[in-house]
Amino acid sequence: MVYSYYPGCTLKNTAKELDECGRISAEALGFTLEEITDWQCCGGQYTSGKDEIVTKLSSVRALDDAKKSEQDLVTLCSACYNVIKQTNNAMIEDSDMQMKVNNYLKLDEPYKGETSVYHFLEVLRDKVGFDKVKEAVKAPLKGKKVGAYYGCLLLRPGKVLQFDDPENPKIMEDFIKALGGTPVIYNMRNECCGGYTILEDTDAAGRNTSKILLNAEDMGADFLITACPLCQYNLMQNSLSEKTPIYYFTELLAHALGLREKECFK
């Protein structure tokens, strides 16, 4: 199975691990992430204003590219997933938006939301199946207590993303179980890390992330996994506690599949 893959800016720079581990794991699990040519930055943030046209264009170009390749579009980064999936939904639900975007882009054939958008985790759950992932595991995470950190972008708005129960998700917990680890449920796992406000005020983001980390530690997590580079950065930078490292979920996957050995997961 081949998917159109939208990496996003951060995965080409500070979050190379998220990208590379994702790609090699995909191959090991029998599917290919084929990078969209000439993709542009999604903007990192979906602007919900109905008159916001320009900020939708880069996402629609990527979606249209996938449509032409007759492939589903897959992302690894939570932010890209959120922006592109919400944009796709607007192209289906909002006829005014659809008309204006198409007028602007002048594509060969108007784009009307035909492409399906999946996060890598959804591919594992719904296409590959966690049972198959489990079978492929070579180095199970025995005895590791892993906390999943979802943040906001994978889950909300729940009605549009339809990723998982936005208040009590379990996809990453099932992922951890498939890799042989023990998931730790802590309720701060879907609260915001502070996001982009880190740029203006490092302390502000730190207040949010320390609450998240303290909750995860209190509930017994050895380390956390996330799908978002900004979440990872905020959690690492601003944590009052340094006990709990944060990894990308693909790093954990690549290790469990025996593709990239990591001391910390042993």
Binding site: G8, C9, T10, N13, T14, A15, C41, G43, G44, Q45, T47, T55, C77, A79, G195, Y196, I198, L199, E200, C228, P229, L230, Q232, Y233, Q237
Partner: peptide
């Protein structure tokens, strides 16, 4: 609210591009 020339001073080691693009958009 944010001007491009302010970015350099705010940018710290390892900050993901995502933070900057998002802040610009916001």
């Amino acid at each position: 609210h944010l001007k491009p020339d302010q970015i350099v001073e705010k940018l710290t080691e390892g900050m993901p591009q995502q933070a900057i693009t998002t802040a610009f958009r916001k």
